[in-house]
Computed example of a mutant assay.
Amino acid sequence: MKRFSIGYRTLKTAIGATISIGLAEYFGLDFFTSAGILTILSIQTTKKQSLHEVYTRLLASIIGMIMAFLFFEGVGYHPIVLGCMILLYLPILVMLNIIPAFVSSVVIILHIFHTGDFTIALLKNELSLMLIGFGTGLALNIYMPDIKHRLEQYLIRIEELYTAIFVEIEKYLRNGDTSWDGKELLEAVEVLNQAKSLAFQDVENHLTRRENLYYMYFDIREQQFEIIERVLPKITDLPVIVEQAELVADFLADMSQNINSAGNTANKYREKLEVVKAEFAKLPLPTTHENFLAMASLYQFIEEMDLYLAIKKDFKGISPSRKHFKKKSNAEN
């Protein structure tokens, strides 16, 4: 059973319904409780979603009122006429890709059907309900809680996990340690998914800003993680630990302690990889088939790490506050 909690969206929904119903009743509108329904439907998790919902529901309601006038006034206020109207109305909403707006628009349509007389007064009443209902929802959705602190927490955790993963690879290359259970890999997948979802929510809450550095950062880390998953089997299945493994281990030891988002030193570490390649060339050629396979795997690992770094070479970096976190090195890879 989940823990009982009241989130900000729940709180806004309750407050919004109360305000809109109170306003509709204060202005003496018929069906005033429907204003609360319209408010509840317009409160979404992000500002962009809320604007989109209000737009689509307003459009659907206007189309619904026009069709209600044509059908009810032209044919009659009868359940069969209502059914025929909905039979045509739904495909129109599907065609316009606004089918989620059906529920709120039906509220307005049923008001007209219940009244049995499409008058100017009724039209003003329904438009007023929409103004109060949708307007209250939009007004409340102007406020969205600051999620930067949570994004920073995810950022720090990703860096910690990547550091731990590279340290484990380094340990294996130095002494063949196979005690690692790989739990950091599973957690990294979960953290990346949650982080990207939260960062996208932040994008949706800024109506004019299209770029989000946190989303870009987590997307880059996700691409890098795909490389990590791809190269791990090549390293962990080495038939023997050859002399070249120490060179790769030294590189990973350096890189693992310099994973950070405050700057960008990808090119610096790509240059270090070139040095590792040069050192490879100076070492004796393999004398056995197993040694040859091990050297080939290590060299392929180096090439993949070059790609790992290249993915991030153009990223300008993030400078989070990190007030509540332990500081690491100012370098980044």
Score class of each variant (00 low, 15 high):
61 S>Y: 10
34 S>I: 15
103 V>K: 12
50 S>H: 06
89 Y>R: 06
73 E>D: 10
36 G>Q: 05
98 I>S: 09
32 F>R: 05
83 G>T: 12
38 L>M: 12
89 Y>L: 09
106 V>Q: 10
88 L>S: 11
102 F>V: 04
45 T>S: 15
102 F>K: 11
70 L>H: 07
65 M>C: 10
115 T>L: 11
110 L>A: 12
43 I>K: 02
48 K>N: 13
39 T>I: 01
60 A>D: 05
72 F>H: 07
82 L>E: 05
28 G>N: 07
37 I>F: 14
67 M>W: 08
61 S>V: 13
45 T>V: 11
59 L>W: 04
87 L>A: 13
33 T>F: 08
33 T>K: 07
94 V>G: 03
83 G>L: 06
109 I>E: 10
39 T>Q: 06
65 M>G: 02
109 I>Q: 12
100 P>D: 04
44 Q>M: 04
30 D>C: 01
65 M>A: 10
68 A>Y: 04
45 T>G: 02
51 L>M: 13
93 L>Q: 13
64 G>C: 12
66 I>Y: 04
72 F>R: 01
35 A>G: 03
31 F>G: 11
30 D>I: 06
83 G>H: 02
77 Y>H: 11
43 I>L: 10
108 I>D: 00
96 L>P: 01
98 I>V: 15
98 I>Y: 05
98 I>L: 12
41 L>K: 02
96 L>I: 15
50 S>N: 11
62 I>Q: 08
101 A>G: 07
76 G>F: 09
107 V>F: 09
99 I>E: 07
33 T>M: 08
61 S>G: 09
39 T>N: 02
80 I>D: 00
47 K>M: 12
